[in-house]
Design a binder for these strands. Structure first.
Lengths: 222, 222, 222, 222
DNA sequence: CATGAATGAGTGTTCATTCAT
DNA sequence: GATGAATGAACACTCATTCAT
C-alpha cells in the first residue's frame, strides 16, 4: 500500500456524511469553525493561556457563540481531542483492515498517522501535550480521554497480531510494547516537525525510520 | 556496578556544598525549602492550578517571601527543573565516568535515573510533563530548559560512544537515537509508576527491560 | 353575599372582551400566552433569575417573539403586574358596588381577593414580592406601578367609606389604615399559603380571621 | 422608659468590644468598612444590580479585597443581614429584659426598633425587601435567614407574654399575631420613611400610632 | 528581611436584545 | 409575523505580584 493513496481520505473533512437539513448542516459547520479555531489557538498557546475570547475571535464569532456549541471551555477542549482522534481511528481502521500481515498493518498505521498529523499539525501538538498531562489524572473533566484509550487499544491490537505472527517479540506484554511504539512514533514525528524546514526527510523515509527503530532497536547487529 | 551502591549519593540533598557564611547558607536553605514545597505542589496540581500561596503555605513561609528568592512563578518553576536536572546530571557524570564500556555506561545511566526518579517522584511528573509542553516553544519564559538540553546532550554523548564502540547502530544520528532512548525510558518509568502498587517489578528488572527494549527493539529475533 | 358566588367571574380569562378582527384577536392571545408563562416563571424563579428564554420556552414561542409583544424584560414584568391588578380591580369594583355597608364591602373585598389569589398563586408571589421592592423607588422602569397605586387607592376609598359610616376609626388617616389593612391581609394570605397543606382553614375562616384582626386589633377586650 | 435614653446604645458601633491585637482589630475595621459600603449599595440598587466592584469602590478598596473578608457576594449579603439583626436583637434583649409588663415590653421593642431603623435606614430597606423574597425559599444560599427567624421568635415571645398577661387576645396563635405585628410595624415605618421630609411625626408619635393600631385595631370603638 | 493584606487586570460564563432568514 | 442563532456587554471571582509595616 502506498502512502500517497491514503491522502485523500484524510483530507476530506467528515462533516455532512448524511444528507441533513440545512439547519443541522449549518450547525455542524459553525461548530467545526469553532473547533478549527480552537485547535489553532490551543496548539499555539496551550490550554490555559488560550482564552475563549481568543478562540471566538479567531473563529470570527462573538464570545457567547462558542457557548452555543460547547458547554464550557473544558468541553471544547475535550471534544476537540475526542473527535479528532475518533476521525483518525475511523480512517485508520478502514485502511488497515484489508491489509494482510501484521508488519504491513503496522507500516500502514505509521503511514496513515504521519499523513494525518501532517495535515493536522496543530492537533498533533495538542495530542502530544495531552499524553503527559499527568496531573490530569486528578482532574475530573480533563481526565484521560476515552478516545485516547481507544487509540492505545488500537495499537495494542496491532501489537498482539504482531506477536501472533511472530513479527513482534512475545516476551513483553502487548501494552508495554504498544506504549513504546507510541512513544517512539511521537518522538520521531516531533523531531521531524521541529526540523520541518529541512527538505531532508520525506514522509516515506520517516515512516521507514520509525519502523526500523521500533522493530530492530538501537543495537548494532552483529 | 550495582544499582544499590548508587543510592546514597542520590539521597543526599545537595544544599550547602561549600562552606558559606551563615547568611548565604540560610538563604540557600530557605530557597531550598521553597523549591521542595513547589515540587510537591506542582506535581500535585500542575503548573497552572498551583498557586504561589499554595506553595508558600506548604513551605511555611509568607507569600511575599517566595518573591525574595524567585523572580516570579515562571522562574520558580524553571529553577526547579533546572536545578534538579543539574543535580541529577552531576551525580550521573560522577558515577558514569569511571565505568568502562558504552553499554555499561548506558546501564549505569538507566540505573541512576531510575533511582533518582524513584526518590523524586514529584519531580518525575514535572520532568515528564515538561517534555511535551510543546507550546512552550513559543512561550518566552517557559521555553525549553537549558538543563533539559544538557540532559539530552549527555545522552547524545553516551549514544555516540556506543556508536564508536559498535554497541549502537551507526546508521541513525546520535540525536535521533538519544531521543528514542529517552522516550522509551520515560514511557517505561511512567508505566512502572502507574502500577507502582504491584510488587511485580524491581528497579533492576525494569532497568533490564528498558535496555533490552532499546537495544534489541520490538522485533522477533529469528 | 357568598364567597363562592364570586368564583366564576374570577376564573373567566379576560381576553377578547370586544369583538376584534382575527389579527388583533390572535395578537392578544399570543400576548396572553406569554404573560401566562411569564407569571409562572417569575413566580418560580424571581425576576432576576428568570430568563426571557425560560419564559419563551414555557410559552412555546421563540425568544424573539417575546420582543414582538413586550418592549423588554422590564415591560413584560411590569405589564404582568399591571394587567393582573387591573383585572382584579375590575372584578372587585363590579362585585363591591352593589354591596351596601362599608363593613360588608370590606368583607366582600377580602373574599374576592382571597379567591383571586387562590386562583392566581403565582401572581400572588409576584404581587407580594413587589410590595417591598423598595429599591424600585430608585429604579426607573420597575418603579411603583400605577395599578398598584390604584389598588391602594381602591382600598383607601373603602376605608374612607368605613370612616364615614363609623365602622372604621377616624383618628388615623385613610391612607395609613389602608396600608395596615393591606399588610395584615397579605401577611395572613402568605401564612395561609405556606401552610397550604393543612386542611385547617377554609377561605371563609381565613376571611373572618383577617377582618377580625384588622377591625378589633390584637388587644384583649375587657 | 424613655425612647431617647435608648439612643446611645444603638449608635455605638459594636466593633472592638474586647481588647484585640492590632491585626484582628484592623481586620474587623476593614470588614466593617466593606459591610457599611455594601449596606449602602445594596439598599440603593438591590441585591442583583449591586456589583462587587460598586461595593469595593464605595468602600475604597480593590475588588479582590472584598473577597478577603467574604466568601462571595451571597455571603456578604447574608452576613450583612445576619450581623445587623443580631446586633439589633442583642440591644433589644438588653433593654427589654428589665421592663415589667408585656405591654411595656412591646412599647420598648417598638421604640428600640424605630431608633435602630432610623440610624440604619439602608439596612431597613434590606431588611424589608428580605421579608418577601419568597423566591428565596427555593434558593439555597439566600434562604430565609437564621437571624430573621430569631427576630420573629423574639416577637413571638413578646406576644406570648402579652397573652399570658391578658394584654393580647388569646384566640389567635402567637405566631399569627407576631406576623401581623411585624407587618403593621414595617408598614408604618416604611410610610414614615417615605414622608420623612415632613416634620410631622416624631418617633414617639409613630411609636404610639403603631401600638394603638396593633392593639386596638382599625375598628371604631363604640 | 519577612510578612500577608491589598491590588486589579484578566477570564469564564450568562443573558437581554437584535436581526437575517 | 415568527424564529432562534448571534451578539457582546457585564459581572463574579481568582491570583500573580507589590509594598507598607
Amino acid at each position: 500500500m502506498n502512502i500517497n493513496s491514503l491522502n485523500e481520505d484524510i483530507i476530506r473533512r467528515d462533516k455532512s456524511a448524511l444528507p441533513l437539513d440545512r439547519k443541522e448542516r449549518d450547525r455542524r459547520l459553525r461548530r467545526a469553525d469553532i473547533m478549527e479555531a480552537a485547535e489553532r489557538i490551543f496548539a499555539l498557546k496551550g490550554y490555559h493561556k488560550a482564552t475563549i475570547q481568543d478562540i471566538a475571535k479567531a473563529a470570527q464569532y462573538a464570545t457567547g457563540t462558542v457557548y452555543l456549541y460547547f458547554e464550557d471551555k473544558d468541553e471544547l477542549y475535550f471534544s476537540l481531542r475526542e473527535e479528532k482522534i475518533r476521525d483518525f481511528l475511523r480512517i485508520a481502521r478502514e485502511k488497515i483492515k484489508p491489509v494482510e500481515g501484521a508488519r504491513e498493518k503496522l507500516e500502514t498505521f505509521v503511514g496513515i498517522s504521519l499523513l494525518f498529523f501532517e495535515k493536522n499539525r496543530d492537533f498533533f501538538l495538542i495530542f502530544l501535550s495531552e499524553r503527559s498531562k499527568v496531573q490530569a489524572i486528578k482532574d475530573a473533566k480533563l481526565s484521560r480521554s476515552a478516545a485516547m484509550l481507544h487509540y492505545r487499544e488500537f495499537v495494542v491490537e496491532l501489537i498482539k497480531k504482531g506477536q501472533e505472527q511472530r513479527v513482534v517479540r512475545g516476551d513483553f506484554s502487548p501494552g508495554q510494547i504498544a506504549d513504546i511504539f507510541i512513544s517512539i512514533f511521537m518522538t520521531a514525528v516531533f523531531d521531524w516537525f521541529k526540523e520541518g524546514e529541512k527538505p531532508s526527510g520525506s514522509l516515506t523515509e520517516l515512516s521507514a525510520f520509525i519502523l526500523d527503530a521500533f522493530i530492530n532497536g538501537a543495537g548494532k547487529r552483529k
